[in-house]
Computed example of a mutant assay.
Amino acid sequence: MAGRLLVAGLLLSVIGAGSAISDDGSQFVDLWEGNAPGESERSHGTPLPQRPDENPPATRITAITAPTLERFDSDPETKNGASVVILPGGGYRYCVVDKEGSEIAQWFNKLGVTAFVLRYRTIRESDRDRNEAWRRPVQDTQRAVRWVRSHSKEFGLDPNRIGVIGFSAGGNAAAITVGSKSSHYTDGDEIDQASCVPDFAMLIYPWNLVRDETLELIPEIEIDSQTPPTILVHAHDDHSTSLSSIAFYAELKRNDVPAELHIYETGGHGYGMRPVAGSVVETWPARVEDWLRNRGLLAQSP
């Protein structure tokens, strides 16, 4: 897995704007033509050393200033027209691109859903205001939703069935995206004429949705009756407190937005779809599949 990612990264570095195909058939594309908003350089990032205590290991990419989408197509016989943009976690310092990226994409493909793993821009040590760490990833998420919507006909997708799923910090970015009333960057090209609001959302152990020691949502999240339907998954023993998901769900309930909330007693944080000893938290994909199916999101496009 790491080798595949490194090869694709090298291809992207060589070709610059454009696309590169990895050895498993997934395709990388640059999210922005030219520099992303506020950037003066273009880097697809650097893999961090793998952690010796992880089995299997996870791949973490840091120092990203040129975000990319990696497209995973489902089998043509099962493809149903739905799509999802996947936002890995990593505390905004890096993107965990396999455990919370490609592994999730391959699961969605089995459901007939086309998946796009977003390698959003990561925070830099020179960034002084860490309260603004969300801004670049949210800009990239909004752009990604618009990019998929703009290319929906090309990829045989339904422009009205585009979702987002975010893990940890990626869940924070996804939550701000679904709770935003407008774009967080200045619209530019034709792609930016498409809506940046996803049609549904899945927040998996989302991080930092509430103010410290309160249940008040952070000010960047604005929920109303037009907020997309959302499912949330958390663990009771997560150090990134499940109260965050409870507060988000409560606001969805107050605004009569269709929603589900699942809290497992154990599981901790950062598991992706991998098993956790002494827990059944790895069964959350079945809850999400049920929710997607009940909402008609796994049905074939007309």
Rank of each mutant, 00 (worst) to 15 (best):
W32D: 06
G91S: 13
E41T: 10
E77D: 15
E54C: 08
C95I: 05
P67V: 02
D75G: 09
N35I: 07
I64E: 14
E70N: 08
A58F: 09
T46Y: 11
T46F: 14
R60E: 14
D30K: 07
T62K: 15
E41S: 13
P67R: 04
T59K: 00
G38I: 09
V84W: 03
T65G: 03
E39H: 10
Y94G: 07
G90K: 07
T62Q: 13
R51C: 12
T65P: 00
I86R: 06
P76L: 14
R93M: 14
E70K: 12
A66F: 04
V85M: 13
D73I: 03
Q50G: 13
A63Q: 12
S74D: 05
G91W: 08
A36Q: 01
F72N: 07
V29W: 09
L31H: 05
P52I: 09
E77G: 11
D73L: 13
P56V: 08
T59M: 14
G90R: 07
A36S: 10
V96Y: 04
L31Q: 00
D53T: 11
V85Q: 07
P47N: 02
V85H: 11
P52S: 13
A36Y: 05
S83M: 09
V85P: 00
T59N: 06
A36G: 07
A63V: 00
P47T: 06
L48I: 01
A66K: 07
A58P: 06
P56W: 14
E41M: 08
G90Q: 10
Y92L: 10
C95T: 06
Y92Q: 05
D75I: 04
G34P: 02
F72S: 09
N55T: 09
Y94F: 15
V96P: 03
A63F: 08
V29Q: 12
T62E: 14
V85A: 13
Q50P: 00
D30M: 06
I64W: 04
E70M: 15
D98G: 03
P88R: 07
E33Q: 15
E41R: 09
D98F: 01
R60K: 14
P76I: 03
I86G: 10
Q50I: 10
D75T: 05
G34T: 03
G91R: 01
P52G: 12
Y94W: 05
G38L: 11
A66Y: 00
D53Q: 11
R51I: 15
P76H: 05
N80M: 01
K79T: 02
P57E: 08
T65R: 06
T78W: 00
H44E: 00
I64C: 14
A36C: 06
K99V: 02
W32I: 01
F72Q: 01
I61E: 01
L31G: 03
H44S: 03
T78P: 03
G89P: 05
T68C: 12
A82T: 13
R42G: 04
N55D: 12
N80L: 09
T59H: 12
N35Y: 12
G45S: 02
L69T: 04
V96K: 09
D30S: 10
E100T: 00
G91L: 10
E33F: 11
P67F: 04
I61P: 00
S74T: 00
N35W: 05
C95D: 09
D30G: 15
R42S: 14
I86C: 05
